[in-house]
Design a protein around this nucleic acid. Structure first.
Length: 399
DNA sequence: TAGGCCATCTGGTCCT
DNA sequence: AGGACCAGATGGCCTA
């Protein structure tokens, strides 16, 4: 699938851009500091000893120089001539930069601030000196807090709190929606926020890999991908939802799969019967223990050992209702049991897989239906439109 | 009881 | 000025 590597390239590009932007910012700050050093003698508005300023600036310069390497700029003795333009834009774009907080530009704002300063009473002036008697950093003067103003600030703070609460509730609602569409949904044992996000990321990744492989997924590989980076409890929960024992797919300390032998996928899914050839395909074909009759989607005889840690809390087709294949059109694995109406509310879209050159080799045995009239790997359409295909897929796996 | 998770408050920053 | 967004702080709750 062409778009999976494209995603990786995109991520790499984004991270490269972030690095460059950070470099630019550092360059800008550094230039600013050099400029301030250069102009130190003409610095107005700062009631502070010049030596102190220089020490502070040099300290900042030292800190900023560490990760920064640009010999051309550093070696340029005329760097000051290039400063003003950069400084102005920097001052506009990063008004809260630390070095700028100390600066008092000669502008109408300065006059205004000076006027406000003149209105200050002596008590406030006392507060402007630190423990050493040195003047504190000067910034915009705070307006006098009248009772009315205090009340207004309080009121605004309360409103802001309410908005923030509401915003967080919206975020939590979105997370709840996400919980419902990732594998392993339990109303009683909710995944934490971070685990939900991790699982969702893994799920997307796993589905992408399945699409790119263009064949029926290996359950263990699928679950291993799902559980990457998840905590042990969440791993167990996913294992329960997938009716597997966590130890069968947990990765070892090297991050490699530690399982061996026949894939439990074969115990969950019957060997796929090719409609045309009538021969079993897929994993472990021919390895099914003939002495023990195979039970599709069964979990009560031959492979019970795989299901020791199933979670009764998990809502899954395997736990309730008529047996149905744990795989469907929408999510490869159908791990949640929701009625159609409820599911339709939460999941309005299904994926319609379309033909792409990279997957042109997909045969009729592929689990994905492929149409030949599209170029984009997939498009979205209303879920109701996919019922027929879903039924067809489910039927295929029943067989 | 320590640690994890969560909700809420709060101040800072950015944007309109 | 005000709203959205963000991150840090804090306290409560739960569990191993």
């Amino acid at each position: 699938m062409a778009w999976v590597p494209a995603l990786e390239v995109g991520i790499a590009v984004i991270s490269q851009r972030e690095k460059e932007e950070e470099r630019k910012r550092q360059r800008s700050r550094k230039s600013r500091l050099r400029f301030l050093l250069h102009k130190k003698k003409n610095w107005r508005g700062v009631v502070c000893d010049g030596a102190i300023i220089q020490r502070e600036l040099e300290k900042k310069m030292t800190m900023l120089t560490l990760p920064f390497e640009e010999p051309a700029l550093m070696a340029d003795p005329q760097f000051g001539s290039n400063f003003p333009r950069e400084c102005v834009s920097e001052a506009k774009s990063r008004k809260n930069d630390t070095c700028l907080r100390d600066e008092r530009p000669s502008t109408p704002e300065l006059k205004k601030t000076d006027e406000e300063e003149s209105e200050k009473d002596e008590d406030e002036r006392e507060e402007d000196r630190d423990e050493n008697g040195l003047p504190r950093r000067r910034g915009p003067r705070k307006k006098k807090m009248t009772q009315q103003r205090v009340e207004r600030v309080k009121m605004r703070r309360q409103e802001a709190n309410a908005r923030e609460r509401s915003r967080m509730h919206g975020l939590n609602d979105a997370l709840d929606s996400l919980r419902k569409v990732v594998p392993c949904y339990s109303k009683t044992q909710k995944l934490s926020k971070i685990e939900t996000l991790r699982l969702a990321k893994n799920y997307i990744w796993a589905l992408s890999e399945i699409l790119s492989a263009g064949k029926r997924p290996d359950l263990l590989a699928f679950v291993q991908t799902l559980c990457k980076g998840l905590s042990q409890p969440t791993t167990n929960l996913v294992a329960g939802c997938l009716q597997l024992n966590a130890r069968n797919f947990l990765t070892d300390h090297n991050g490699e799969a530690s399982h061996s032998g026949r894939s439990p996928y074969d115990s969950v899914f019957p060997p796929y019967q090719s409609p045309e050839l009538g021969t079993p395909t897929g994993h472990g074909s021919g390895t099914v223990d003939s002495a023990k009759p195979f039970r599709p989607y069964g979990y009560c005889n031959t492979y019970e050992s795989f299901y020791e840690s199933t979670s009764p809390e998990c809502i899954s087709p395997q736990f309730e209702g008529p047996l149905s294949p744990p795989i469907n059109f929408n999510g490869i694995f159908s791990l949640k049991h929701e009625d159609t109406a409820e599911y339709g509310k939460n999941c309005h879209y299904g994926m319609h897989y379309c033909a792409v050159p990279a997957r042109s080799s997909l045969g009729q045995n592929s689990m994905f239906r492929v149409s030949s009239d599209r170029n984009f790997p997939y498009d979205l359409h209303l879920r109701s439109q996919s019922y027929a295909m879903q039924d067809e897929l489910n039927a295929a796996f029943h067989n």
